[in-house]
Computed example of a mutant assay.
Amino acid sequence: MARQSSDTDWSQRWDLLLRYRLIETIALWEGRLTTNHLRQAFGIGRQQASKDINFYNSEIAPNNLEYDTKLKGYRPSESFSCVVTKGDINEYLYLLASRQDLSSKIEYLDISQANITSISPPLRNVKPEFVRPIIEAARDRMRVEIQYTSLSKPEPRDRMIAPHTLVFNGYRWHVRAFCEETNMFKDFLLSRMTDISEITLKAQQSEADDEDWNQFVEIIVEPDKRLNNAQQKVIEHDFAMMNGQMIIKTRAPLVTYYLQLLRIDKSELHPIPAAQQLVVTNRSELEKWLLPE
Results as ranks from 00 to 15, higher is better:
218 E>K: 15
161 I>H: 07
289 W>S: 01
42 F>K: 03
271 P>R: 08
36 N>G: 13
7 D>C: 06
71 L>R: 07
256 T>D: 04
88 D>C: 02
158 D>E: 14
129 E>M: 03
138 A>F: 12
73 G>S: 05
272 I>L: 07
261 L>D: 07
40 Q>Y: 14
62 P>A: 09
101 D>A: 12
116 I>K: 13
194 T>K: 01
159 R>A: 08
234 V>M: 05
82 C>N: 05
279 V>C: 06
140 D>C: 10
169 N>Q: 13
45 G>H: 10
143 R>Y: 05
2 A>H: 14
269 L>R: 14
46 R>K: 15
69 T>S: 12
166 L>K: 00
251 R>T: 01
194 T>G: 02
56 Y>D: 06
167 V>M: 01
251 R>N: 04
41 A>N: 11
81 S>N: 07
198 E>D: 06
117 T>Q: 08
216 F>T: 15
5 S>M: 09
125 N>S: 13
4 Q>P: 08
238 D>K: 04
265 D>R: 09
91 E>R: 10
118 S>K: 11
66 E>W: 00
27 A>S: 15
158 D>M: 12
274 A>M: 14
122 P>S: 13
111 I>P: 06
180 E>N: 04
23 I>D: 08
131 V>A: 03
185 F>K: 01
149 T>D: 09
122 P>R: 12
281 T>P: 02
178 F>S: 03
211 E>Q: 10
201 L>A: 10
16 L>M: 15
268 E>L: 02
120 S>H: 12
155 E>S: 14
62 P>E: 12
168 F>H: 04
221 V>C: 01
156 P>I: 12
133 P>D: 15
275 A>I: 10
145 E>F: 06
146 I>D: 00
256 T>A: 04
158 D>Q: 14
14 W>P: 07
48 Q>H: 11
173 W>F: 07
102 L>N: 09
264 I>S: 00
59 E>Q: 11
135 I>E: 07
70 K>D: 14
149 T>M: 10
60 I>P: 00
150 S>W: 08
153 K>M: 09
186 K>W: 06
278 L>M: 02
253 P>A: 07
233 K>W: 10
59 E>W: 03
41 A>D: 12
102 L>K: 06
143 R>W: 00
15 D>L: 03
46 R>V: 15
